[in-house]
Structure formats: structure tokens, C-alpha cells
Design a protein around this nucleic acid. Sequence first.
DNA 1: CATTGTCCCTGGAAGC
DNA 2: TGCTTCCAGGGACAAT
Length: 268
Amino acid sequence: MPELPEVETIKNELYGNVVGRHITSITIDDPKPVQNPLDEFTRGVSGQKIEELYRRGKYLIFKLSNKKYLIIHLRMTGAVLFNPGKVGKYARVIFGLDDDNEMVFTDRRRLGIIRLTDNIADLEKKLGPEPLESVFTPAVLAKRLQGRKAPIKAVLLDQKVIAGVGNMYADEALFASKIHPLRETGKLNKREIGRLYDAIVSVLKEAVANKGASVDTYQRPDGAKGTAHENFKVAHQRGAKCPRCGGKVERIVVRGRGTYLCPKCQKI
DNA sequence: CATTGTCCCTGGAAGC
DNA sequence: TGCTTCCAGGGACAAT
């Protein structure tokens, strides 16, 4: 499940291969992910130079020479492959580049989206601060959590609060800061928010360093897996021993999302 | 605005 | 063995 570290890794590993290249062909094997009318999409992308590539939250954004933005969200099972040996069963959209290389959007479950837009402000409005940039501080986090009644786990998943944190890293950050996922957000004290801040930053940084977590279908552009999941303390570790207290990692459901925790370390 | 529930989608797992 | 049902979850959207 691509979250910030996974999308960051894809961006990093794609960057040198695609920035500066022109998109010379588009093959749409499955129109489902494309949110624009197909002719408009094809016209807007064909022949354009990729001037920049960056990540915002869990979105991968290609800035094109016609000032439009090609936005990709991988949702659950999406991936962007660079020159895959053969075009797999789940290839949806194939971008041919002017150096004869190919960039392929694949998605087993077809929940991912691709959109071409000239209005990046709309996306910006939906997203909170980038947790690995200087705009994100303990004070900023405290302000965003202030007065909220929902459980902290649910709030961490809200992309308007912090961009890029998803189900796995929310669980890891809550474990690292010893906060129960069901704690009422607005009732966290300053010390807890400080710990949570540190945990979010360190958990994400470590996962980026390990090139993302391959718990499901996540793969890097060259098809390789990441290793961040090898360091997971609780996420997807039901029944495992808590590395801090030796207790048992449990799974509960919070707002319909599978949530892993050590109930001994993370008291309500 | 904050919050909660529903829907989308597929294939692997679990149940009968 | 083979069929059916359940489940995973990010974000759009609707309802409250």
C-alpha cells in the first residue's frame, strides 16, 4: 500500500529516467484510471516534455511543458514501472518516451487514478503539510489536532491534517509514541503530541531510507521490493511479540481500518 | 467545519 | 475439490 515513503521512493528512482524526456506515445489499455475524457488526456500529454517530477502527499506529480500536471495516485495496488521486461496483465496506461524507454502504470485492483490538470491548487487545498519538510513542526501538529474528537488513528489518516501518512505508518508512529489509536485526539497532552511528532518524522524517514514497505503489491520502478516492512514493530504483525515489552501485538478495527497495536505499551 | 458511513475494485484466503 | 463469501483500504462523496 503506497504511502509517503513508497511514493517518495518511486519518485526518486524514476526521476533521472524521466525528467527532461518527452512523452512520445500513450497506450491506454484500461481507461478506468484516467479521469479526463480520453481524447483530451491523450492530446494534453502527447509530445510534452516532463519538466519536473515531485511528490505531494501520496500523489506523484509530473509537470509538463504545456504547464499541465499529470497526477498519479496509486491507491492500494498501483505501481509505476520503468521498462518492465514484459507488459504485465495489470498494465493500464503506457507512456512511451523519446529515448525508447517506457513508463507503465499498473494496477491490479483498479483503484488508482491518473488525471491531467492545469490547476494544482485544487490538490493543494486537500492536503495538509508535508511531514518531512520544515513546515511541519510540533506546534503545527498540535494546532491541527486541537479540539478534534475523533480517535487519533482516524485523524492521522486524514490527508488534510498531515499529507502522506497512511494506515501502516500511522500504526507505527502511534506505537513508537506509546499512544493508543483510539485516544481522543483533542485530549492528547503536549508531551504526547511531542512524542507523536518525533515518531511520525522518524518512522517516515526510516521507511524512505529503506525504500518503502512491500507488504502487498508495492514495487519500485525497477520491480524491486522495499525493505521497510522488515522493521515494522506492529503494522501487519498480529500475534508477534512486542519488541518493547514482549506483549502480544493485536489487531483492532478503527473506523473500518485494520489497526495494529501493543495494548500493553499503548494504554487507552 | 467535523465526523461517520458507503462505495469502488480484485484476487487470495477462508468457509462450507 | 470446487464453489461462494469475505476481506484488504485511500479517498471521493453523501449524510448528519
